[in-house]
Every structure is written in C-alpha cells, then in structure tokens.
C-alpha cells in the first residue's frame, strides 16, 4: 500500500545574535504515517513548528535528522529522484496572493507542472488537461479562467487554482499549509469542502496544517497537537477535541471562540472584578499570556 511516512523528524535552526549562535529546535522527533484517503491535521500556534514539518515534507527544508519515506523508500533530496517524489507529493500554500505568479495566466500555471511531469504533451492534450483540472475545482467556464491573470480573480478562486496546480502532476499526497486562513470566512468552508471532494475522488492522503481547531476536527481523521516543536497530543480527531488530555490542548480549546458561549466572558470578567473589589486578588493571568 502506498504511504507517506515521516520518522523521527528533527529540524534545528541556527540563530545568530551578534557573534553568538544558538540552536533552535523547531521540530523535535515528529513521526506519523499518511495513508491514501486519510487526513492528518497538525494544529498549533505560530512558532510551534507545524509549518516546518510541512516544508520538510515538501522538500523545501532539509531535515536535520530523521527520514521521509514514500512507499517505504527514503525520498531523494535532489535530481530525478526528487522530481519523482514531487510527482507524488505536492503542496498548497497559505497565501494565494503570493503563490501565483502575477505575470502569468492561470493556464500557464497549470501547463508547467503538466509539462514538467510529462502528464500531457502537445497543445491539444495540454489544453484538454488544463480545462479538466479547472472544471474539477469548479472554475467554469474553464477556457475563460485559463486565460485569466491572477489579479483578475478573488482569493478563493486563486486558492482553487493553487489546488488544481497541486493536482496537476497526479499527486497522491497533498500538504496543505493553512490553505484557507487567508480567505474570507464565507468561502473557507467551500474551499475545504472542495478539497474533501477531491480527496474522495482521487483517494488523496492529505496533511492539513492549521491553527483552527474546529476545521481540524471536521476535516481530518487524526489530529497532532504541536507545541514548541513537540507533538504533545495525538489521536482520532473527535477524541482529541472532545476529550483532550494534555494541558496545552485544553488551553487551546478553551481559548477558541465558541458562539454558544455568548455573554459568558462578560459574566466571568464581572465576577472577577466583583471578587477583586471584595478584597480577593483577581487572577489576571489565567491564560499565562502576560509575558507573551
């Protein structure tokens, strides 16, 4: 069976401050296995190392130690081997405004991977594939969108071009690094539902990097919670969200806005102040964020 496995992945960054050098361990011993048709979500705050994991899998960073295995064989890091790896593993970036070249048409963005990975040859075959890809991400009529430049499209449309581009080589695994966090709220679910449909149709393995616990829960089978480079909790998504074990997961969950809690924060603050007025010291640092 085809799998994408990471084993004991470690990434150190060197930080220079004047003449001093310190090492920052951004990712510490992360392992998981991505299978076709399944989604693993990696959640955590800025700086938790979740994007570094994604970038290592996409071969945009070199791991300090640890292995990335595609179908059981270590992935190549350069040359033809890397081309073959990228044929199977593709990435969707966070910012659809930066990840498309403003100079080129949508058609060009999709044609490049088709050519490079030798999926199609010849003008007619290429155009047919480009139109098919655009239709699959609901950008219709396809010929119209193929001729557009990135600036002529909305953020959601651009992100769907980015998804189509990732699918173009016939990828089996998709690494999506915050694919919807730059998009307007009302179109986020649409893009996620689109990704989910493509996943079903193609039996894709998806690594979903996010800070949004709610979509992580609904969009994935398994959740890894990262904190300062370490995976502090992992498990089936409903279990992690509904029955968190680690303190950090609990903290994240209690900080996530929940509409059903309307008014509760106000009451809490009022009680605290009343208590403080009555002589009890108010605990202002309940979330431990004063020093952050």
């Amino acid at each position: 069976m085809s799998t994408l496995e990471v084993r004991n992945l470690v990434k150190d960054f060197t930080i220079r401050k004047g003449l001093r050098r310190t090492r920052l361990r951004a990712v510490n011993d992360v392992s998981f296995t991505l299978e076709p048709g399944r989604t693993i979500a990696v959640v955590g705050e800025s700086g938790s190392g979740k994007s570094t994991v994604a970038r290592m899998i996409a071969q945009l960073e070199t791991p300090t130690s640890g292995e990335i295995l595609l179908d059981g064989t270590p992935s190549a890091t350069r040359g033809r081997g890397l081309d073959a790896y990228r044929h199977d593993v593709q990435m969707v970036f966070q910012d659809p405004f930066a990840s498309l070249n403003p100079f080129h048409t949508v058609g060009h963005h999709l044609e490049r991977p088709l050519r490079l990975h030798e999926v199609a040859r010849g003008r007619e075959a290429l155009d047919a594939r480009i139109h098919e890809l655009l239709e699959r991400v609901n950008l219709t009529p396809a010929p119209v969108f193929a001729a557009k430049q990135p600036h002529e499209m909305s953020g959601g449309q651009r992100q769907r071009v980015a998804i189509a581009r990732a699918l173009a080589p016939g990828a089996r695994f998709l690494v999506a690094d915050e694919p919807v966090s730059m998009l307007d709220v009302s179109i986020r679910l649409g893009v996620l539902n689109l990704l989910a449909r493509l996943q079903r149709e193609e039996n894709l393995g998806v690594l979903y990097i996010t800070h949004d616990l709610a979509t992580a829960r609904h969009f994935s089978d398994e959740i890894l919670v990262m904190f300062r480079g370490n995976v502090v909790e992992r498990g089936p998504s409903d279990q992690v969200i509904l029955d968190p074990q680690h303190e950090y997961t609990k903290l994240l969950l209690s900080a996530a806005p929940e509409p059903a809690n309307h008014g509760r924060l106000r009451e809490e603050v009022r009680r605290e102040l009343a208590a403080a007025g009555a002589g009890e010291p108010a605990d202002r640092d309940r979330f431990g964020t004063r020093g952050l």
């Binding site: 800070h211 994240l252 900080a255 806005p257 924060l265 640092d285 979330f287 964020t289």
Partner: peptide, 9 residues
C-alpha cells in the same frame, strides 16, 4: 488564539 483570549479579557 491563546494570546487573543488574554487581550479580549
């Protein structure tokens, strides 16, 4: 989110 919650409070 955690910092956000602190600021909102």
């Amino acid at each position: 989110v955690v910092v956000q919650r602190g600021i909102l409070r």
